[in-house]
Nucleic acid binder design. Structure first.
Lengths: 159, 159
DNA sequence: CATAACCTTTGAGTTAAGTTGAAGGTCAAG
DNA sequence: CTTGACCTTCAACTTAACTCAAAGGTTATG
């Protein structure tokens, strides 16, 4: 199977697959005499796994450090530890989101609760004040690698 | 007040404040004869507001489009709409996170449930298979601007 | 034999929200 | 008069996960 065929099967682009190879997620692969990469059918499985792990919030770096070269000799303990850590990360993010949501909902309530009486600027000043002290201390969170978890799951190839 | 003083008060760096000005979030400010920026005390309030909005998941672009120049003539309806939209975004992300978390927890359970009997490679293959079809379709989500919501709230200046 | 549809590598561009560095002007203290 | 702490601009760098373009080789088809 050539790279284009594999890309189609995995729902990726050929350039993404080359990128994964360059990034060390895929071992360097067999070549035809003309230089074309040739993939065995299992390659699609590995790509699907990578995509799934990404959707679950793992970075390519994390995935590389956990993926065994052969797809069968997993480092059990490391994988379990990473999974548990990721669950913790998600829970922390969930807590933060719940706080943010609550703040926003409260803010909406305060803004709506003034049908037009008290001068607009008066109102604005009060709402502002409440908004600012409400936000001043939120839970400190793990490093920035949580960002990934917020990514869209859509983005299937459109061509 | 000079920029360094303002930065200290707002918990930002001077370069961040210059960046916000360049990005159109802050109107260009009065200068001393030597070129130094001079800020009125209210400036800190505006910066606090920007920081608060960012923590709530708004991008600088969004903030710029909502922030009135005078801090008092808000476009009520636009602000309310933006707030409600942001709450929706947060809820969508929460749903996605709950799914991811559930998947990971289930996966951990499956891996743990094999004390060492069935060949490791057998187990790996099964777990893999279940993992892949579980993930294949997740809720499609709004564009990628949800990323911001995952950012750490920590990162108070350390110098 | 021309053309399209593949494939190759390399290098640069994308986004967001800043940070860092160079090169230089200004100001107060000792 | 020099040291150190400020301030100025501008340009380039950072991160992640790719994408895109250029320039060229290969293969199948009409």
């Amino acid at each position: 199977m050539n790279i284009g065929e594999l890309a189609k099967r995995a729902g990726l682009t050929a350039s993404a697959i080359r990128f994964y190879e360059r990034a060390g997620l895929l071992a360097s692969v067999e070549r035809r005499p003309n230089g074309y990469r040739v993939y065995p059918p299992e390659a699609a499985l590995k790509l699907n796994l990578i995509v799934a792990a990404q959707k679950a919030g793992f970075s390519l770096d994390e995935i590389r450090s956990l993926l065994p070269p052969d797809l069968v000799n997993w480092r059990h303990d490391a994988v379990l530890e990473a999974l548990r850590r990721k669950v913790k990360d998600i829970e922390a993010l969930q807590a933060r989101l719940a706080q943010s949501r609550a703040h926003l909902v409260a803010l909406i309530g305060e803004i709506e609760a003034k049908p037009g009486g008290i001068e607009c600027s008066e109102n604005a000043r009060m709402v502002l004040a409440r908004m600012l002290d409400g936000k001043l201390e939120q839970p400190q969170l793990a490093p920035a690698d949580l960002r990934r978890l917020g990514k869209s799951a859509g983005r299937r190839r459109t061509s």
